[in-house]
Design a protein around this nucleic acid. Structure first.
Lengths: 338, 338
DNA sequence: ACCCCAATTGTAAGCGCTTACAATTTGGAC
DNA sequence: GTCCAAATTGTAAGCGCTTACAATTGGGGT
């Protein structure tokens, strides 16, 4: 690290003790106006920046929390995280973010890293993760809250009912008369959100008297082109679907794009739905019918819960954020005779 | 922070001194297999995680660097940053990311925060920032590299020629016969990339014998709907443009979307171009003709430069990453008689 | 002017780790 | 078995900060 001035330098320059400088910076009220001024002058004359590590070590607090999200690639987590961080900032708490690339092993590592860097609590996405990650959290007594999903763990969660929302969407699709339904899903292994959404669709089929095993599910990672390829695979099946329920909006947009490339009209020839309601969903043609998730509310709620937990309080165990379907045009009735 | 076990606990359990434990963890070669085993057992029996702050304090090194990006909202910076962080990880260096929301004051703060948290160097986007930010970097002797743009500062940059690329795109537009050209740009204040792109377009106009002052420029922040509104404003002008050059792909996609909503065909009725070549550019209809930026190469190059700088070496001052135009269909000749 | 208490400032002991340096062990070579 | 250098381990002094506690100061009340 570079040469930096330390508390002692400031103290010397201002002609006071290090304790006084520390007080100036942390509890300005406990110091005379006159000395405070002297100290502050020294502080910015020297460009003094406190050494975070030393501070954390001495005070044994960091005012920092961490979050491990699956990816920063697409906008899925951006809005919620933004709200999370704003709520934290309002409480004077810094957020450290890292991403796991949807890899459980990496996620466990990242949690360790965040805690080692002083995270006093962490935000986790969904419930599916390595046992050792949970063990580490327990052993290090690190508070955590789970978001983007509901959880039955002892630690609180602020999320939404992935299965219920997906089921509702599937019911809507069924109600329009679709019987040949397929799904393009994210990889469900170690991803409870993706898995729940598939499960929700299956539940709707069962409820509608259809065989859930006939649902073709293409599992791909969340990317436009992967969705496009999955779409191609689905459309060359013996009985091509008349509606494709996508696990999220990235997949939905990718599917719409692939449909158009194939010369199919949406929704006349094929209906497509998404999940999340990210910005782009409203900006494709036709607009993507999707599940709107109030990410801002979730992020803010998660922050409140985590902050409470850190303060030793016991926040509500489960906060369920309501989702709703937004109709935009990519979902319609099947072609008659299809 | 939660109760954590410390080096001393491990040492006690393994029956060795704290120095030996430290060596086990940091220079395993310097320790007998037998003792290493004993120590390691104690380490995971206790779930020991070193205290980062203490480590940083004692060793006065952190092996971390920081990056302040304008936003995590859209995918513009995701790919480059990903490459940056992978290159760092390969060198055993951790990346701390924070975002400024395109706010110069906030950016200066974030730089301070990162340095205070131990960043041994920082990655900055573009050249336009508060003087005090540069002063802080100089005074704290923090190495930095600038990416996403070219810079004539003493500190290295790994970027591309925003102005040149925009000029090339504008030349292409002119070559197709367009004369009524407009621009939807990002906010140019404190954003040199946005400003350079506008400048580049103007330069092409001048070169083509047109009056650069006749270029209508709508400045908006980077969001689909903001671009849509800007599009509307442009199209109701006395002489609506036949081509709109957008400052980036988010704006381009927003403009295409708005055009279609307005019943205009792209490119028959209106040509639209973008900049960056993010994923979505290839997945709208028609595909967005845009400037492809090799983000991966840039990110990796920036990492190499910053790492070198931290090691006290003097990397190449300016690395210019070549961009190229990708034709996708949203740019065509103007309607005859338009 | 003097005393006393509250407000302000100083002193110094760590926080958990690394790392010179010192002490001890090890294992050949004789 | 002895001796010596090399390998391994231990000792202890900080790293830059916070914070009890002690010392000092200042300002009424008399």
């Amino acid at each position: 690290m570079s040469l930096r001035s330390k508390l002692e330098d400031v103290a010397k320059m201002a002609g006071v003790s290090t304790a006084t400088v520390s007080r100036c910076l942390n509890e300005p009220g406990k110091v005379t106006n006159k000395t405070r001024e002297r100290v502050m002058n020294a502080v910015d004359a020297l460009g003094y920046t406190p050494h975070f590590g030393a501070k954390a070590l001495a005070s044994r607090k960091t005012r920092t929390v961490g979050a491990v999200i699956p990816t920063m690639d697409n906008a899925i987590f951006a809005r919620g995280l933004q709200a999370f961080q704003e709520a934290l900032a309002a409480a004077g708490v810094t957020l450290l973010v890292s991403s796991s690339g949807y890899d459980a092993e990496q996620e466990a590592d990242q949690i360790r890293v965040l805690v080692m860097r002083g995270a006093e609590g962490v935000l986790l996405i969904g419930t599916a993760r390595l046992a050792k990650a949970y063990e580490f959290l327990a052993r290090s007594k690190t508070p955590y809250v789970i978001a983007w999903a509901l959880s039955d763990r002892e630690s609180p969660c602020v999320g939404f009912d992935n299965m219920g929302a997906a089921k509702a969407m599937a019911e809507r699709v069924l109600a329009l008369g679709h019987r040949d339904i397929a799904m393009i899903s994210g990889i469900t292994a170690m991803n409870d959100r993706a898995a729940s959404r598939v499960e929700g669709v299956r539940a709707a089929l069962v409820q509608g008297g259809l065989d859930p095993d006939r649902l073709s599910v293409e599992e791909v990672h969340y990317a436009f082109d992967a969705a496009g390829k999955a779409f191609e695979r689905l459309m060359v099946r013996e009985v091509p679907p008349t509606a494709i329920i996508c696990g999220n909006d990235v997949l939905g947009v990718g599917a719409i794009s692939a449909a158009k490339r194939r010369g199919l009209r949406v929704p006349e020839d094929i209906s497509i739905t998404g999940f999340d309601d990210i910005d782009i969903a409203a900006h494709v043609e036709p607009g993507l019918t999707t599940v709107h998730v109030p990410h801002e509310r979730m992020g803010a709620g998660a922050a409140a819960a985590l902050l409470a937990l850190i303060e030793g309080e016991t926040p509500q165990a489960t906060v369920c954020i309501e989702t709703r379907i937004v109709e935009r045009g990519s979902l319609g009735p099947p072609r008659v005779g299809a």
